[in-house]
Amino acid sequence: MQGFWEQVWNVRIPIAAVLLFAVGFVTLLLHRNLLKKIIGLNIMDTAAYLMLTSFGYIEGRLSPIIQNGNTDPALYGNPLPAGLVLTGIVVSVSVTAVLLALTVRLYARYHSLNLDEIYAMAQKEHGLG
């Protein structure tokens, strides 16, 4: 049993990331409030980045810059995930910006943030369908 908990401890960050991802995913999918949806989206993306970052950090290794002329790759962590996360953050910031802009527009028109209410109003506005 000791071995099992040790294994779980070793993957604690991916587990936390997947839980956070699920929280964000469900919020994005099921919440009717647009702002909360956007928050859910950000939690979801951040969880993905947390997981990616955790692959870059390898316990007991040095930061990935050559130190003391030592070029053995086994001494250093993995610098690539940080680059990927940076790219991902840029993507999620722009997506959030677009969604927020859409929300502002919807609010200006329908004075509501609840997607169901907005939908009902839009249907009334355009008649059938």
Binding site: F21, G24, F25, L28, L29, L34, K37, L41, M44, D45, A48, M51, G88, V95, V98, L99, L102, T103, R105, L106, R109, Y110, L115, I118, Y119, M121, A122, E125, H126
Partner: peptide, 23 residues
Amino acid sequence: GRTTLAATRYMIFSLIGSGLFLL
């Protein structure tokens, strides 16, 4: 109004999809 709403729903579904793809 209808297209803004459609765009919002499209974005939400799309983002769910790309989130899963990213993971």
